[in-house]
Computed example of a mutant assay.
Amino acid sequence: MDVRVRKPGRSTSVFVVVLAYASLASLWILLSDRVMALLVSDPAMLVQVSMGKGWFFVAMTSVLLYFLVRRLVDQLTAAHERQLEHQREQKQPPPMLVAIANSSTDAIFAKDEEGRYLLINTAASRFIGKPPEDVLGHDDRAIFPPEQAAFIMAVDRRVRETRQPETNEEALLTREGARVFLATKGPLLDAQGRVFGTFGISRDITERKAAEVALHDNRERLRLLVDHAPAALAMFDREMRYLEVSRRWRDDYMLGDQDVIGRSHYEVFPGIPEYWKAMHRRGLAGEILSADEDAFTRADGSVQWLRWELRPWREADGTVGGIVLFSEEISKRKLAEQELKHRNEELERFNRAAIDRELRMIELKRQVNGLAQALGQRPPYDLSFTELPKGEGQ
């Protein structure tokens, strides 16, 4: 759309004024000189009359020129106003476009090259808190606080200059409070490709933005909780890829600083027994599993003893999204238990050997006492401690 003002008929009107002036001047000079020659014969008087005639001509032509120029200016001004009104009407959006825009819940607007609103739909009007008639024809400085208006107008100006659409997040203070909009703006082009304004579509994403911030905060808290949990903890998706892993898990399973997030658990630990994989599949099917002690033979042949628990975690729709594994490294406790058992077994063997030896000694002493009694001698050994008190054993 060509918005430049052109004043039609200007050259023609000027030519008419000049022609009228030239005609009048020519007639005046021709006729007035002849009349003066007939009426005045004295040369001195003729000079005086000629000067008067000249001043009279200047006065008359000045008055005539004033009315002619004023008429011309009025005509040009009226034509200019008509053309401006026509251009304003051309810039006004058609009723169908206004109806479509008003049916949208997104804020839709259009501005001219000076940033003045040409179109504003119902949603945008609601956010601004002003009816469309109070917004149309004004720029953002009449609507928003100075800093916000400067920011919005700077974006509009950049869009017009670059002729490229942009999508930005805009935090604005509206009648409904502080809101965040995802605003897409682009240049308005006429039939000749000239920029004559900007258009914009803004979607209120305040709730979505708040949800994103809350989700980020929750993830950060979860990450800190997992990372600093006193137990070894790892979270997996349905493909057994790591989603989160605690520092204790890294330490217990000697992972060091390697990045395991996104990697398969079976890639990180290729020697996982098949029965553990079966446990994982059962967990992904929704079961909760645990073991007080379990042996894990590492690739180097060493054995780790673990106490573990496996729980499924669920998506928002209730489906299983993966599993969480909690484990405790109990190898030291298991070794201590095994050592204690071994020592008890040794002590039991020693105790049994000592008892057998003592029983043999008692039997030999009984035999010696029996031989002494047979020879009429006093038994040399007191074995009364082996006899039950009277009344016992009956």
Results as ranks from 00 to 15, higher is better:
22 A>S: 11
275 Y>I: 11
53 K>D: 11
259 D>Q: 07
47 V>Y: 09
325 L>M: 12
347 L>E: 15
390 K>L: 15
346 E>C: 01
106 D>W: 00
54 G>M: 13
312 P>F: 05
310 L>D: 07
115 G>Q: 05
313 W>H: 05
270 P>H: 04
199 F>R: 02
283 G>K: 04
16 V>A: 15
368 V>Y: 06
355 I>V: 14
201 I>E: 06
383 L>A: 03
1 M>A: 10
322 G>M: 06
259 D>G: 02
107 A>C: 08
109 F>Q: 06
181 F>R: 03
19 L>A: 15
247 R>A: 11
374 A>I: 03
27 L>W: 11
72 L>P: 00
52 G>E: 08
71 R>C: 09
382 D>R: 04
47 V>G: 08
56 F>N: 03
197 G>V: 01
152 I>E: 12
96 M>Q: 10
164 Q>M: 07
309 E>H: 06
352 R>F: 08
382 D>L: 05
265 H>G: 04
4 R>Y: 10
29 I>A: 15
360 R>T: 11
285 A>K: 11
324 V>K: 09
72 L>C: 07
148 Q>T: 08
216 H>L: 12
114 E>S: 08
149 A>L: 05
124 A>I: 00
65 L>T: 13
286 G>D: 09
234 A>T: 13
246 S>F: 03
111 K>I: 02
351 N>W: 10
208 R>T: 10
159 V>W: 07
274 E>F: 01
124 A>Q: 06
257 D>T: 12
52 G>W: 14
98 V>M: 09
321 G>W: 10
321 G>P: 05
239 E>V: 01
104 S>Q: 09
359 L>D: 09
212 E>T: 01
307 R>N: 15
